[in-house]
Amino acid sequence: MITTAVLLAAGEGSRLRSAAASKPLCHVGGRALIDHAITGFAAAGLARVVVVLGYEAERIEAHLAAGRWPVAVETVRTADYRQPNGVSVLAAEHALAGEEAVLAMCDHLVDPALYARVAQSGAGCGARLAIDRRITSDLVDLDDVTCVRTEGEAIVAIGKHLEGYDCFDTGVFAIGPGLFAALSSLESPSLTEGMRVLAEHGAALTIDCSDLDWIDVDDPAALDKAEHWLRAA
């Protein structure tokens, strides 16, 4: 089982700026988004979290230093937080030293059981994405979600506004050296482009997590949905 998580918390989060100056520190359900993620990893049985920082890095580092966490937490910084998110993923490569990890987004609220399932699945020879086949879910923003088309467990197409999709990208992956190699081959690496590279070689796989809930807290409307979701849980 994978025991390390990589948490992307480097972006500006401009669409949520009205609620918080720093998206990872935006409160939902009485706690910062980054706190939900870290405690969720611990509940899933992970032991270590590598947090990738960029925008407002000093403020987030201070928040992490002041906390008492149930897992080991360390930070790295992306070379440029304005670049595509694959650059932030690459910033964590040295810290993993060739080991596999669970990769997640700081602005996603996720049932810890989803992290656990991904940790148990492993990355295969490239990367494995947790998918949700509930394509009519009201927790998902169709204008923002990354869509996926699959054949068996393999990804054959991925992207926003994809035609003919059969599931959604939950933002949680099992990753290994194969994904880092794919991202390093790209001039402007994004996670989606990295997964496309892997898909060309049959190395972009999926794990079905349609029975587990998650929500991308990307704007005030999603924040409101997340508050209601947590109260109902």
Rank of each mutant, 00 (worst) to 15 (best):
T4R: 12
V6M: 13
S14V: 11
S18H: 05
S18M: 09
S18E: 15
L25V: 12
C26F: 14
L33A: 12
F41M: 08
A42G: 13
A43T: 10
A43Q: 14
A44T: 07
L46F: 10
R48Q: 12
V51I: 15
V52G: 10
G54Q: 05
E58I: 02
E58V: 10
G67I: 10
G67C: 07
P70W: 11
A72Y: 05
A72G: 08
R77S: 08
D80A: 13
V87N: 08
V87H: 06
A92V: 04
E93V: 04
H94P: 04
A95H: 06
A95D: 01
L96K: 05
H108D: 12
V110L: 04
G124A: 09
R128D: 03
C147T: 12
R149W: 02
T150F: 03
A154N: 08
I155H: 01
A157Q: 00
H161I: 00
D166V: 00
F168I: 09
T170Q: 09
A182I: 09
P189Y: 10
L191W: 02
T192P: 02
M195Q: 01
A199V: 05
G202K: 04
A203W: 02
A204I: 01
S210Y: 11
S210A: 13
D213E: 15
A221P: 01
D224C: 12
E227C: 08
